[in-house]
């Protein structure tokens, strides 16, 4: 079962919920936690495991071979991203704009744009008690998160059986990386905070996830600050809030030490238990 934890706004507690929920569930069964926020993965700050495997990840970029090129220009016509341009007697490729779709390479009648590997990031696989933890990180200067997110999801699919619980810590926002990180999930948990920013970005996240036709629920973090606009909105929209993590100075203290919250804070443990029960219920419903 795949559970993606996302938010609109950054800093609302995706990693806090992902790591605590994964570690809590891992006390009873094998869980895979994957950090898909490849631009700045930070679940690893809270999960202490031993490195089992690491590998470089590559994206495929065309490289112009002038030998047989007849400068027909098909390559630039088929590129949706202006990543290939014909300039006089040269074909220019812009690797940062390229989405690795192969169109120019495949449609070139002279095979003058062979695809070449370009390193984009690093995947690491750690093992802790009951918990497998995967994280990927983009190399400095790489702009596109989506190809690395996709390859990281593929790694998890290839290395772990379908039926175990897989939790995916997603990137913030509502753009392509979030869509890539959530579109494969069975359920999406949107975590937000009851502030005007949290509320506003939750509505954007809900719009996005609805567009993807995904089942989703909401968790409210730092409950007790701000106002009741998130709760009113969820009620009006018929969205289930499955947990409210209370706002508490002690949360910040434990978090700042790099520790998990639920072993130290009973009030948080209660909420995590409730979310775990919800997940177990969902799993029962889906017949797995």
């Amino acid at each position: 079962m795949k559970i993606a934890i996302a938010s609109g706004k950054g800093g609302t507690g995706k990693t806090t919920l992902s790591t605590n929920l994964a570690a809590f569930l891992a006390e009873k069964e094998h869980v895979v936690l994957t950090d898909l926020d490849v631009e700045e993965p930070n679940s690893g700050l809270f999960i202490k495991g031993t490195l089992k495997h690491s590998e470089s990840k590559y994206k495929m970029i065309p490289e112009w071979d002038s030998a047989y090129c007849n400068l027909c220009g098909i390559c630039q016509e088929v590129c949706n991203f202006n990543a290939v341009l014909k300039m006089g007697k040269n074909i220019m490729v812009f690797p940062e704009l390229c989405h690795g779709c192969y169109a120019c390479s495949e449609l070139c009648p002279k095979n003058s744009l062979p695809m070449k590997e370009k390193p984009m990031g690093e995947l690491k696989h750690f093992e802790a008690a009951g918990l497998s933890f995967i994280e990927s990180k983009l190399l400095i200067g790489e702009e596109q998160a989506v190809p690395l997110i996709k390859q990281t999801i593929d790694y998890v699919d290839e290395n772990f059986p379908e039926e175990i619980i897989k939790i995916y810590d997603s990137p913030p926002g509502t753009s392509c990386p979030v869509i890539e990180a959530t579109k494969h999930a069975d359920i999406v948990i949107l975590i937000t905070e009851p502030t005007p920013f949290g509320f506003h970005d939750l509505t954007l996240a809900v719009e996005t996830i609805r567009e993807l036709k995904k089942e989703f629920v909401v968790v409210v973090n730092r409950y007790g600050i701000g106002d009741d606009s998130v709760e009113k909105y969820c009620k009006a929209e018929g969205i289930t809030i499955i947990g409210k993590i209370p706002n508490d100075r002690k949360v910040a203290e434990v978090y700042a030490k790099g520790d998990l919250l639920y072993p130290a804070l009973p009030s948080v443990k209660k909420v995590i238990e409730k979310i775990a029960l919800f997940i177990q219920g969902e799993r029962g419903d889906s017949g797995r």
């Binding site: 991203f81 202006n82 990543a83 341009l85 014909k86 812009f94």
Partner: peptide, 15 residues
């Protein structure tokens, strides 16, 4: 209407 690569595209026109 171009989401990506406006710079290269405009440069090409300019050329």
């Amino acid at each position: 209407n171009e989401a990506h690569g406006a710079g290269p595209k405009t440069s090409q026109k300019l050329a």
